[in-house]
Design a protein around this nucleic acid. Structure first.
Lengths: 136, 136
DNA sequence: TATTTGATACATCATATATATAACAAGTGG
DNA sequence: CCACTTGTTATATATATGATGTATCAAATA
C-alpha cells in the first residue's frame, strides 16, 4: 500500500497513518491477513520516529483493525463482529450535518455517498496485490 | 437551541461547540438569521472561559456558518455558495471507510445514512429525497 | 456616559504531539 | 548460543495545542 503523510499538516501524524490504513482496508488494498510494515521500517520510510508509528498501530489495534504480536508483526484483522456502531454513526451524522448546513444539495450528497461506496466495492476477489513489507 | 458539552471529554470544547452549532443548523434548530448567544453568556452557561467560546465562534465564522459583528453578535448564515466540497467529501470518505473496514453491512450503512438525512429534512428548500427510506 | 458586543494581547498551566535514547521480551534463524 | 527482528515499555525533552485568567480595545447602542 502506498501512503502519503503530510508532515507539518494540521492532523497528527499517527492519526494520518491510522486513517490511511483504514482507507486501505476499505478500498481492498489491504485485506485480512495482510502484513503492515514493521514500525521501524515504516518510520524510516517517512523519516519520522518509530514511536509515532507505534502509536498509530496501537490505535488501530484498539479499534480492532489490526492485531499486533512480536511473532507476526502487524496483521490486518477485518473479521469483526458488530461492535461500536455508535462511533461511526455519530461521525456520519456530523459530516452529513456539515454538508447540509453548508447548503449542499441532497443530490450532490447522494452522489458523493454513492461514489465512495462504489470505490469501496471490491467485491470479494480482485484488486491489486498488496505490496507492503513482508507477506506470507 | 440546547447544547451539551462533555467537559473533560476527549474532544476539545471549542470543537464540541462548533459541532453542536453545525448540527443545530442541519436539523433546522438554527436557521438563517438566528442569533447565537453572546460568547460571555454561553461561556457562563457552561462554566467555561469566554475565550473558548470565542474560538468556537471564530472557527464557525471561518467555515462560513455564522457571521460576527459587534453590532449584531453571532448570526447564522446558511445562504452560502457551494464552496469547499472537498472538505466534507473527504470526511465522508473516511467515515464510510471506517464502517466498511469494520465490516458493517452495506444495508446498515445505508440505513444510517437514510436516518440521518431524514433527521435533517426540515422541509426547507433543496430537492426532495427519494421516499424509499425505511427505519434503522 | 455606561453597557454590551466581539476582538486582542498578554500570561500561565496542563495536556498532546513528536522526537530521542535506552532497554526489554518474545520469536526466528544462523 | 548468539544475532537479529519484532513489538513493548520507560524516561526525557522540545514544541504545539487547549483552556483559563486578566486586561484592554473598538464599535454599536441605550
Amino acid at each position: 500500500m502506498r501512503m502519503e503523510l503530510d508532515l507539518g499538516g494540521e492532523q497528527p501524524l499517527y492519526q494520518q497513518i491510522r486513517d490511511q490504513v483504514v482507507l486501505a482496508i476499505a478500498t481492498g488494498a489491504l485485506r485480512e491477513g495482510d502484513h503492515l510494515p514493521p514500525i521501524r521500517e515504516l518510520a524510516a520510510e517517512f523519516g519520522i520516529h518509530f514511536h509515532t508509528v507505534n502509536k498509530a498501530y496501537d490505535l488501530l489495534r484498539q479499534e480492532g483493525f489490526i492485531r499486533l504480536s512480536r511473532k507476526s508483526g502487524a496483521v490486518v484483522h477485518t473479521s469483526r463482529s458488530e461492535a461500536d456502531t455508535e462511533v461511526w454513526q455519530h461521525k456520519l451524522r456530523l459530516v452529513l450535518a456539515e454538508a447540509v448546513a453548508k447548503g449542499v444539495a441532497r443530490a450532490q450528497v447522494e452522489a458523493a455517498y454513492r461514489a465512495v461506496l462504489a470505490e469501496f466495492e471490491h467485491g470479494s476477489s480482485e484488486d491489486a496485490p498488496s505490496q507492503s513489507g513482508r507477506d506470507a
